[in-house]
Design a protein around this nucleic acid. Sequence first.
DNA 1: ATAGGGTTAG
Length: 609
Amino acid sequence: MVGTSVHHNLHLPQPQEDHHHRKTFDFTSGEQQCISLLKKCKNIQELKQSHCLILKLGLDHNSNSFCTGHLLSTCALSTWGSMDYACLIFQQIDSPDSFEFNTMIRGHIKDMNLDEAVMVYNQMLEVGIQPNNFTYPSILKGCAYLQRLKEGMQFHGHVFKHGFQDDVFVQNSLINMYGKCGEITQSWSVFRQMDDFDKSLATWSAIIAAHASTQMWSECLSLFQELTSKNYWRAEESVLVSVLSSCTNLGALELGRSAHGFLIRNLSGLNVIVETSLLDMYLKCGSLVTGLTFFERMKVKNQWSYSVMISGLAFHGYGTEALRVFSEMLEKGFEPDEVVYVGVLTACSQTGQVEKGLDFFKKMTVDYKIKPTIQHYGCLVNLMGKAGKVKEAFDLIENMPMEANDALWYSLLDACRVHQDLELGEKVAEKLLNLNSQTPDPYVILSNMYAKARKWENVALTRRKMGQTGLMKTPGFSLIQVKRKVYKFVSNDIKWAHCEGLSDMIYQMEWQLKFEGYSPDTSEVLLDTDEDEKRERLSRHSQKLAIAFGLINTSHDSSIRIVRNMRMCKDCHNYTKYISSIFERRIIVRDRNRFHHFEDGNCSCKDYW
DNA sequence: ATAGGGTTAG
């Protein structure tokens, strides 16, 4: 049945007479009109009506016609497209050509249906249609998006077999696919084998994004710096998003700030994705005020921007404000997703609002039908643990619908340490050791707890057990950025000793600290050595090295910003408080969980972290 | 007259 609205727009081809006075139909004009109709289609109903017309006019089997191709691509690739209907059309085509096969593959990938796409690809080979250089980018994109390395590698094989290994688009897709699947060496090998002449902005964008998504942030930044020297480089948002995320993870505020300046100078307006990345960068690099101002000035905000702002406020310790922004987000009509609830629950745990947190959790699962992830349970464990409800937290973990991971048990173990619940602590440490992760860290925490409770026999026993594992404690490191370069300090690393002036500075710092009344707290050093050796070790903790380096290399009016991979030890926390007052510096440290703003001998965490 | 590569959060 042909719909009236469409029917009125189409003039059916009229029979014409040729020079023998025979009546013929001019199909070409019919085709033209069908195509223009297809282009106007706004939904699947209109498309179906146009399809009927094409069938009625017999234009679907005309080998010179583009109608079927148009029809298929409109159906499979438009925003409102339906792959079910596309499959129906596709089945009716007698002998599909490579264009039609490719369209089907791309359609399935758009629906994230890699298996169907692979089936179409195999069918294509079976009927003897050669894949072309349009085939592989689509299918590799699907492998990338779904992180299906196995299939990705198979198709890399096909690329070679069919001789497309030198096609630039295929190479870019391969770089992206390997990057998304975490195989950075493979991405790099494709990139390296490419001719410099062939590399485009998209190629660089792919390799830079690949480094960012495999957490190789420093390498990502150096690649970006290399890119900016190329003549086809232009200010462009997408590359900067990867760059900004690297700055965020490295805590490289200065670099991030100059990227921001660069964007403002070169582009008239920024899209919401880049602005959200900038917001995240400012917040996670410790500039809460800049981030907040930036957020308020953003003209376009989406749920992601809100989500970033909410978790930003939460891990800076402003739980109440985070919840206020959350209610603003709901008022504006943005649907909360599972990610924003991680921020909301963190906010509750920072402010110690156990009941409120549990309420939010209930609302999330019941009202919004969001399936809780292990991160949400992690927030709840944090929430209960901080409030001293360690037994309840333990029960919660035991009754979760999924397996607990080590982060969850560590969070609880830490709560047990803070609240000195030795009995439960032992149980939790047991759980952690059963997880068989290659670290003696549970022993370390347990031993600290015994030491605090003055149970020296248990301390000795735990240390002996730890020694038997032969494992080394996870190395702690601190990052600091000076003059657009990020420096990494690893605890007890001897490399720093060669750094000019650092030993002198550390000596000077210790001298002044002693004068002000600081004494080293060796209770968390777990070595069976004498007190001197312990003090020596303590003084070479990565954060202290980084602070010394910062004091030497940054101006007196600037803050020192440090990013750590682990929690601070008690001594480093105390030490940093003293330094902030002696040297009159703001020191901002980001640890695994939150920010510590040190100023005038105090810390924003109020010594509870 | 139909098709392809690179883009953010815990």
